Amino acid sequence: MLPWIQLDSTIIPGEGGELRLKQRGNEFSIMLGSNELMNSRLSGSEEALATLSYERIKDHKRPKVLIGGLGMGFTLRAALAVLPADAEVVVAELVPAVVAWARGPMADVFKGCLDDPRVLIHQGDVGETIRLARADFDAILLDVDNGPEGLTRKSNDRLYDFNGLRASRNALHPGGILAVWSSSPDPSFTRRLRDAGFSPDAVNIRANGKRGGARHVIWLAVKQLA
Rank of each mutant, 00 (worst) to 15 (best):
A81C: 10
Q224E: 15
R166S: 08
M31L: 01
G69F: 07
V82I: 12
R166W: 07
P117Y: 03
A214E: 04
G33C: 07
L52Y: 12
D186A: 10
G104Q: 11
I30P: 08
G212H: 00
V217M: 00
D8L: 00
A107W: 02
W181G: 01
F110E: 05
L225E: 07
A92V: 11
R192H: 00
R211V: 02
A196I: 00
E27I: 11
L132S: 13
V89C: 07
M1V: 10
R192W: 00
N146Y: 11
P84D: 13
K111A: 15
K154L: 14
N156Y: 04
V99A: 08
G127W: 01
V98P: 08
V89K: 05
R20Y: 01
M106C: 15
Q123E: 15
S155V: 14
S29Y: 02
E47I: 04
S168K: 06
G25I: 12
V91I: 06
R215F: 00
L76T: 11
F162S: 14
H60M: 09
R169P: 10
N156Q: 13
G17A: 06
D186M: 04
W219D: 02
E149D: 15
Y54C: 15
R166V: 13
P148T: 11
S34N: 14
G176H: 01
P187V: 04
R169H: 13
V98M: 09
D143P: 13
W219I: 00
A107P: 10
G175V: 05
L141T: 10
N35H: 05
T10A: 14
S45D: 15
A179H: 00
P13F: 03
K58Y: 05
I121Y: 05
L165N: 07
S45L: 15
V95E: 04
I205Q: 04
A171V: 06
L66C: 09
D86V: 03
V203K: 07
I30M: 06
D108H: 12
A135S: 15
E27S: 12
S34A: 13
I12M: 01
V98E: 02
G147D: 05
L66R: 04
L142Q: 05
Y160W: 14
G17Y: 03
D201V: 03
E47Y: 06
N26P: 14
I30W: 00
S34R: 11
L193W: 06
E15N: 12
D8S: 04
S183Y: 03
N208I: 06
I57E: 04
H60S: 13
D138S: 10
E93L: 11
E27W: 04
L80T: 12
L37K: 02
G150K: 10
L37H: 03
N156A: 09
A167P: 06
N163V: 10
S43I: 07
Q6N: 07
